[in-house]
C-alpha cells in the first residue's frame, strides 16, 4: 500500500535528519574552544574514575574514533555521568522523558483541537462579534510572552485564588498514601498539570485558530462546496462534512512545522512550574555547565520532536488521500 511506502520514506528522512543532529552535537561539544575532557568529565572525580570515563567516552582517541565511540555509546545508552547528579545521564533523563511527553503531547493535541474547533466557528461568523472576539483573543494570546503568562497564572490561580498547585507534578501525600489507587494518582498528576498545560495551550491555540479560520474561508470558495450546496445539503453539513476536513489540513501541517519551535516554550514552562521533564533538565544543565546532561537532553528532545513529526505526517496522510494513494 502507498501509505506504507510513504511512512517508510519519512522514516528514512527522519533517520538521516537524526544522524545530522547527532553529528552536529558531537562536533559542537568536541570542537568548541576549550578542553573537551573538562567538559565531559567532572573535575571533582577521582583520577581513576576520570581515567575510566575518558576511556569509555573515547576522549583519549583521535576524533574519527571518538565519533564512532560516541555513536556506539549513544546506541548503547552511555551518555556519561551527570556532573550535578553524579549519576549516569541516561538514568536522570529516562525518568524525565514520560513527563515531558505527557505535557508536550497533551498541550499540542489540545491546542490543535480547540484551535480547529474555534477557528471553524469564527469562520462561520465572519465579520460578526463572535469572529472579532475570537480573532483578537487568538492574536493576543499568541503574542503573549510565555514566562510572563506563566507567572500571571501562578499569581492568580496558584497564589491569590489557591485553586491549583504551582509546582511539581505530584503531591507527596497522595503518592505516599498506600491506599491511593491508580485513578487518584492520575488525577493528582492532572491537577498539577492544569497550570503548565494552560500556559502552553494559551500560547499555541491562537495560531491554529487563525490558520483554521482563514483556511475555512478559502475552502468555502472551492467548487466542491458549490456542488455540496447544489446537492441540497444543509449549510451546517456543508461546513462540517465538506469544508472542515479540507480546511483542517493546513492546520495539521502547521502543527508539524511548529513542533520544533515549541521546544523553547516547553522548556521554559517546565522550568517555571518545576515540571520534572527534559526541558527543565536542559535549562538546568546548561546553566550549571553540566555538559553530559545537556548533550543528552538535546538529543532526547530532538528525538521527541522528530517522532512527533512523524506522527503528524502519518496523521496528515490519513486525512488527505492525495498523499496516501
Amino acid at each position: 500500500m502507498e501509505l506504507r511506502r510513504y511512512i517508510l520514506k519519512r522514516l528514512v528522512q527522519i533517520t538521516i535528519i537524526f544522524f545530522v543532529i547527532l553529528t552536529v552535537l558531537f562536533l559542537l561539544f568536541r570542537l568548541a574552544p576549550g578542553d573537551p575532557v573538562s567538559r565531559m568529565v567532572d573535575p571533582d572525580m577521582t583520577p581513576e574514575d576520570a581515567e575510566q570515563l575518558i576511556h569509555q567516552l573515547g576522549l583519549d582517541k583521535p576524533l574519527g574514533i571518538q565519533y564512532l565511540v560516541y555513536l556506539k555509546n549513544f546506541f548503547t545508552g552511555h551518555f556519561g555521568i551527570s556532573f550535578h547528579y553524579g549519576e549516569p545521564v541516561v538514568d536522570v533523563i529516562w525518568n524525565r522523558l514520560p513527563n515531558t511527553i505527557l505535557l508536550f503531547t497533551t498541550s499540542i493535541i489540545l491546542s490543535a483541537l480547540v484551535g480547529i474547533f474555534l477557528g471553524k466557528i469564527a469562520s462561520w461568523h465572519k465579520g460578526e462579534k463572535t469572529d472579532s472576539v475570537m480573532t483578537i483573543g487568538a492574536l493576543v494570546t499568541h503574542t503573549l510572552f510565555l514566562p510572563w503568562l506563566a507567572l500571571i497564572l501562578i499569581w492568580v490561580f496558584g497564589y491569590k485564588l489557591g485553586w491549583f498547585p504551582i509546582n511539581g507534578m505530584i503531591s507527596e501525600e497522595v503518592w505516599l498514601d498506600p491506599d491511593a489507587g491508580f485513578i487518584a494518582k492520575g488525577l493528582d498528576i492532572g491537577y498539577h498539570m492544569i497550570l503548565p498545560l494552560t500556559t502552553l495551550f494559551l500560547i499555541h491555540f491562537g495560531a491554529y485558530l487563525l490558520i483554521m479560520r482563514s483556511s475555512m474561508l478559502e475552502t468555502l470558495k472551492e467548487d466542491y462546496i458549490l456542488t455540496a450546496r447544489a446537492k441540497g445539503l444543509e449549510e451546517k453539513d456543508i461546513r462540517d462534512r465538506h469544508a472542515a476536513p479540507n480546511a483542517a489540513l493546513p492546520v495539521v501541517t502547521s502543527v508539524g512545522l511548529s513542533l520544533a519551535f515549541s521546544i523553547n516554550g516547553g522548556a521554559l514552562t517546565e522550568t517555571v512550574f518545576t515540571w520534572p521533564g527534559i526541558g527543565r533538565e536542559l535549562v538546568f544543565s546548561v546553566s550549571q555547565n553540566d555538559y553530559p546532561l545537556a548533550q543528552a537532553s538535546f538529543l532526547l528532545i530532538a528525538i521527541v520532536v522528530l517522532i512527533s513529526n512523524l506522527v503528524v505526517d502519518v496523521l496528515y496522510a490519513y486525512l488527505d488521500p492525495r498523499i496516501r494513494y
Binding site: E222, D223, Y224, L226, T227, A228, A230, H242, P245, N246, L249, L319, D320, P321, R322
Partner: peptide, 15 residues
C-alpha cells in the same frame, strides 16, 4: 441538478 465545469474541482478531494 447542476453539472459544473469539469476544470473546477467539483468533487471533494478527501471523500
Amino acid at each position: 441538478a447542476m453539472i459544473f465545469q469539469a476544470a473546477m474541482n467539483a468533487l471533494n478531494p478527501v471523500q
